[in-house]
């Protein structure tokens, strides 16, 4: 890890020098600059190091159940009681069933494949999402708070969500599906590091 970042740091300097206003090739149009690409283009983001707990699959399933079962139940009850609206309610029942099936059978497994996280002494890095994937990284020098949160479903499964916030209202990183002990330890460690890291007051 260290070795790799050292190797990269050297290249970074070169490319940073190139990134002057006069030289817009550095990240210029895909079509025009095949030949003039910098070394950066040979690199890609690796996935964060750690997976979330396996139990997280169960957590996501439970979440879907809690969300879609009441909708499905309401649609079925309405279908039984309200004869005139049945053609509409069939649609509602089909939609709610689909939501439930996808939410229980597809979404949790896809999420388990995608969700990963990693913390280093300098940064927090996480990948999440299923239909829309997201890679989020924040430097610890900008971190304001680190909390371990537990919702009722997470309590049930012994899981916890690590929430790292920065001064930006959109900059928070949530890492769900961690073991409660891991999350608590991480929150403690990261808080300690952020207190030692000279932050910039914003």
């Amino acid at each position: 890890m260290l070795c790799r970042s050292g190797f990269y740091a050297g290249k970074m300097n070169e490319t940073a020098l190139q990134a002057t206003p006069s030289d817009s090739r550095v990240i210029s149009g895909h079509d025009s600059s095949q030949s003039a690409r910098s070394d950066l283009s040979a690199l890609s983001l690796r996935p964060p190091a750690h997976r979330v707990e396996r139990r997280a699959v169960g957590w996501w399933m439970l979440q879907s159940v809690v969300l879609s079962v009441p909708i499905l139940a309401a649609a079925i009850v309405a279908y039984v009681l309200w004869e005139a609206a049945r053609p509409w309610l069939v649609l509602a029942i089909v939609a709610a069933s689909l939501l439930l099936i996808v939410g229980v059978a597809v979404e949790p497994l896809m999420r388990y494949r995608v969700h990963r996280w990693e913390t280093t002494p300098e940064a927090v890095y996480a990948r999440s999402g299923w239909l829309v994937r997201e890679w989020r990284a924040a430097p610890l020098s900008r971190v304001q708070t680190v909390d371990a949160l537990r919702g009722p479903l997470e309590q049930l499964l012994g899981l916890s969500t690590l929430r790292v916030t920065t001064a930006s209202s959109y900059g928070a990183i949530d890492i769900g599906g961690l073991d409660q002990k891991t999350a608590a330890r991480l929150a403690e460690d990261l808080t300690e590091i952020t207190q030692q890291t000279p932050g910039d007051a914003t």
Partner: peptide
């Protein structure tokens, strides 16, 4: 990588 200097460096391969 360049928008936030240094932040993503350790995560590149």
């Amino acid at each position: 990588v360049q928008a936030a200097p240094g932040l993503l460096d350790p995560f590149l391969v």
